[in-house]
C-alpha cells in the first residue's frame, strides 16, 4: 500500500530498487542489480512521492504486482499535449 508522505520543503528522494542493495555487495553484483528497462524484461522497481486525489503519498511500483500497469512519462506539468 502507498505510504503517507509528509509534505515539507525538502524535495522527496526517489528510491530505486538498486539502492536497497547492501553496501558491501561486490561492484559486479551491484551492476547487475541496476538493470535498465527492456521490453520483455522485469520493469525496474522504484519508489516515488506522488499526488493523488488530494493527498501526498509514496508509491512503489512493485506494490502493483498482480495488476496490469501503464507507466506514463511526460515532459512536464502544464505542457500542452
Amino acid at each position: 500500500m502507498p505510504t503517507d508522505f509528509k509534505p515539507g520543503c525538502v524535495r522527496p528522494k526517489s528510491t530505486l530498487a538498486a539502492a536497497a542493495a547492501p553496501a558491501d555487495t561486490a561492484v559486479a553484483v551491484v551492476k547487475e542489480e541496476i538493470h535498465v528497462a527492456k521490453v520483455g524484461g522485469l520493469a525496474p522497481d522504484f519508489e516515488l512521492a506522488g499526488y493523488q486525489q488530494g493527498g501526498f503519498k509514496n508509491f512503489r511500483l512493485s506494490e502493483y504486482r498482480g495488476k496490469w500497469v501503464v507507466l506514463c512519462f511526460y515532459p512536464g506539468d502544464f505542457t500542452f499535449v
Partner: peptide, 13 residues
C-alpha cells in the same frame, strides 16, 4: 520524453 510502458501482473514490460 513521452514514454509509455505496459507492465503485466508479473512486473514484465
Amino acid at each position: 520524453l513521452r514514454g509509455r510502458f505496459i507492465i503485466d501482473p508479473d512486473g514484465i514490460i
